[in-house]
Design a protein around this nucleic acid. Structure first.
Lengths: 131, 131
DNA sequence: TTGCAATCTCTACACATGTAGTGATTATTC
DNA sequence: GAATAATCACTACATGTGTAGAGATTGCAA
């Protein structure tokens, strides 16, 4: 039994799968395929292969119930997001937070509401840090 | 001649190469290899292969001067960073900025100085947005 | 019980990436 | 000009990822 990893690096295809699983676990491959039909229209065997590979990597777990294989996520969305962010941070910004934030703010359209929310986040963070 | 792409997705190895090139372009493969010696200790042929593949993808350009091949970046660091960030944003957060920021703040240790800087960034952004 | 529908298993192929060896070519120096 | 150093080109192999077909198995329904 592979331990569930902390250092996952999911590919776009894998992200697509995981999002479905997180929303409806435990779930079987055919259901996942169906859910992904609109976006990627993958054959069943494609989905199945991807999922089995995720099991091999310790990102999903598989349990056989009679003929059926039920999959569950072995990591939380938060863990996966964290990995993704850390990876970008390390690869592209040498781990430096501020430049990344700067890039993020410059890059995407931020609504005033979001800006306000961000300020709130920062204030909270500051309060925590002070303790 | 491949056009330089806007939608690059650099792998960690490719990032390593590109960082060196940005710093000392135009440069030849042996120099890049040497510069990377401490971190990755790749053989010359490894570095060379990676660089030629980057040329094939339009991320680097190569120019032959006699026997020597000089490489230059076809994209700026900013473009590459932008791609990386956007990719993470899209993959892991469905494009939603605030959750990503939240994750970023939660995930990494932020110094009070950085917090202050971030607030400044946001204030600036707000000023821009108002115009 | 026979047949269709759902599901599974196995295998395969192309392309990307990490990694490098080997032999050829060019330039330099004695 | 012959030996040496620097550089290159070509080829190769393993692993990961995107993608899927073909055939086997199971379960329900008539």
């Amino acid at each position: 039994m592979k331990p569930s990893k902390q250092n996952v690096a999911l590919s776009p295809g894998q992200w697509a799968i995981m999002k479905v699983v997180w929303e409806s676990q435990p779930c079987a491959a055919p259901a996942v395929q169906e859910a992904l039909q609109p976006t990627r229209n993958w054959a069943y065997s494609t989905v199945r292969t991807l999922m089995d590979r995720l099991v091999a990597q310790g990102v999903l777990t598989a349990e056989k119930v009679r003929h059926l294989t039920l999959y569950r996520a072995a990591i939380t969305p938060e863990q996966a997001q964290r990995s993704e962010v850390l990876q970008a941070l390390k690869n592209a910004f040498n781990g430096a937070l501020t430049p990344m934030l700067q890039c993020l703010l410059k890059t995407s359209d931020v609504t005033p509401e979001e800006l306000a929310e961000l300020e709130k986040l920062i204030r909270e963070k500051r309060r925590e840090t002070k303790l």
